[in-house]
Design a protein around this nucleic acid. Structure first.
Lengths: 152, 152
DNA sequence: GTGCATGCAAAGGCTTTGCATACCA
DNA sequence: TGGTATGCAAAGCCTTTGCATGCAC
């Protein structure tokens, strides 16, 4: 039988299944943090997610957010991003197409993009080296349109 | 090895010029750290560079290494790399062709590569978004040939 | 009930900063 | 000589861990 999870969304299903398999528990905090994470729909730092979780439930601890993010990453719900600013960013991953980022070094905005040709070439290059890719990161740094204009 | 000093290489020139321009001083420590950095010819962490500098001059300080790395990065002699392991790696940049990395997630070895087609496509994509690239990072994560075999 | 989960605080790892002294230009 | 640079240690950041208590299963 295909899909068993209905009203909760596929993510919640994935998460609880993952927890069950690992003999972990589905707690109120984990649900809350997952929900807040998904609701944000974009890059978010642990700190920020912590704030959002706290808005709903003032007792949530920092450590719990970190631990939950680890789990969400493990089961493929979240992806870690490293923009080189010294903190890890997370973004929802499940049911999102893979993509890369252009990051404006002036204002911090980012553009998501996906270029199939580049993805192909990455495969080709690694094959040539006998390397087996499991994931990749690509970030283009520079100036967005707006900042280019303002700079002049 | 006392008479070798004549061939200081272009890097030393770049560095002292940079220092002069910024009205900074060329100290023994800065020379030492630069030399150790260039001698290594590969990725190196601040910690490691600190060790190597200490071998030559036992009371070099940690902070000095960090401060010097900043300067070397500023004047284009070094490039910061972030492999996502929580520490910054540095590599010599001047007179080195730009390249990207494949990193084995099992044994940590890395392969450097450059694919002109990918570089072109990066330019194209960003142009399409009105974005002006100043630099980029691309890391492919996966298993190197050796670890693929050992895994089986 | 039994273990895992939580919250708090404290500890870790890497990097930066403050300060008195040392040293280059 | 004056202003940087240095070394040391302490402080900062982000993240992880320890521990007593709480809670899902």
């Amino acid at each position: 039988m295909k899909n068993v999870v209905k009203e909760k969304g596929r993510e919640a299903g994935v998460f609880s299944l993952y927890l069950k398999k690992k003999e972990l528990k589905l707690t109120a905090q984990r649900e809350l943090i997952l929900k807040a994470f998904l609701a944000h729909r974009g890059h978010i730092s642990a700190e920020e997610l912590f704030q959002r979780a706290r808005e709903k439930q003032p007792h949530v601890g920092f450590a719990t957010v970190y631990r939950t993010l680890k789990h969400m990453t493990q089961c493929g719900l979240a992806r870690e991003l490293d923009f080189g600013d010294g903190r890890i960013q997370y973004e929802p991953e499940l049911d999102r197409k893979h993509h890369d980022h252009m990051i404006c070094t002036k204002c911090g905005t980012y553009i998501e993009f996906l270029n199939p040709q580049i993805e192909d070439l990455q495969e080709q290059v690694s094959r040539k080296h006998g390397f087996k890719i499991t994931s990749h990161r690509m970030q283009l740094y520079g100036l967005c349109q707006k900042c280019q204009k303002n700079g002049k």
